[in-house]
Design a protein around this nucleic acid. Sequence first.
DNA 1: TAAGCTATTTATAAATG
DNA 2: TCATTTATAAATAGCTT
Lengths: 233, 233
Amino acid sequence: MNASAATEIAVASSSHAIKKGRQSNGQKKSMGRQKIAIERIQKEDARQVCFSKRRVGLFKKAHELSVLCGAHLAVLVFSPAKKPYSFGHPSVPQVIERYLTSQSSNNPRLEASRKRKQVLESTLRSKKRSIWNAEVEDLGLADLHKCKDGLERVWAELEAKERLVLEAGIMSYRDDLQYGFNNYGYGVADDQKFHHMMLNSAAPVNMQMPDVPTFTAMPDQQYSDLGYVFLQQ
Amino acid sequence: MNASAATEIAVASSSHAIKKGRQSNGQKKSMGRQKIAIERIQKEDARQVCFSKRRVGLFKKAHELSVLCGAHLAVLVFSPAKKPYSFGHPSVPQVIERYLTSQSSNNPRLEASRKRKQVLESTLRSKKRSIWNAEVEDLGLADLHKCKDGLERVWAELEAKERLVLEAGIMSYRDDLQYGFNNYGYGVADDQKFHHMMLNSAAPVNMQMPDVPTFTAMPDQQYSDLGYVFLQQ
DNA sequence: TAAGCTATTTATAAATG
DNA sequence: TCATTTATAAATAGCTT
């Protein structure tokens, strides 16, 4: 890498410069890997091809990092065609959960949220005490007003929270965590199957590392170290 | 890769085989990169070093994929020391949001959730109409009972949702999305600074690609294509 | 303890079947 | 649209400081 720096500079950084080539001798020799600039690939088909290859490469790197270092991690990728792909160890939902929690723990905004919640709860509790603990028959018109106001406010809050939670699918996400959805998977019996699923699955593939690694049966060098568990969506 | 396959097989796949070496001529020549098996690294310090190097490599690959293909993606990593690191394009929260939504869209449990929400809303709306649209003075004791019941139920629902949302820090996460928290960052003036932050930040670093890419001023080949924006947590 | 080196291994851009 | 091949670019393991 360093050794080639001078050459790279001389060649100029703008790539996609096509050195179209076939050897003068007519031999169909590959140009081999060409250096490309890290900038959006304009040709759509080339972009799609690049995405497919590099997505696999990225997931492989992520897998290796998780195994070599026992690191918890998640990779979420949306293809140019909007399909979601993911890899996670020990699982995507667990890592997301952990990440969100870690972010909120040192987020001053959360403190503000907690404060607001405390105020709200306190207000509602006092309202609750003053109205709900009384016998209905003992309440007068003023109490009815209070009750209506309270219901209105709480209903609005609930509506907002419902929308927040449900429209984002977070409720569902937490349900998943709780009920173990997404923890199913297919053990990959051999590397051919792995290879096929990695590259060919029409539907996005969800990969997770099991806590106890599965293993592959075939000695193919390229993937013999992999032990994915898949979830075809 | 293919060319060396035969050699690899001959050498045997079990790695960590230490060919400790110094040239017989006394020259301190590096052994160069050695092949390793993808299995947990036992030595803690070696594991930490590997993590540091490969985390940077993984983020770089993710960045390249996002730029080359315009792909939305997020990478969440926890170090062996439990520190969170993340990279996202266009941002981590946006990709997580999109991922969770995409997951829930083909999740039957969400449909159940939506159903429950509709029933609840319908119930509450009818309650709201029947009580709130009336003048308080027109309401009688039965209405007060109804109001109390409604408030009690709605308050309980709200309490549950509040707990769900706030204890998980999800509220905070969505606040972040709404208010743009986490969208602050430091433009990296030069590659040295980038390099330093990538490798040395004691605190976890949050990286995001801005919608309009920033750029680096120095022509260092190694990172001249990068335009990260950082958030030091 | 993080930074840099070097020899390799690994990833992958292009070209092909 | 896919799988292989080729040749090269890029990543990185083990050292050294």
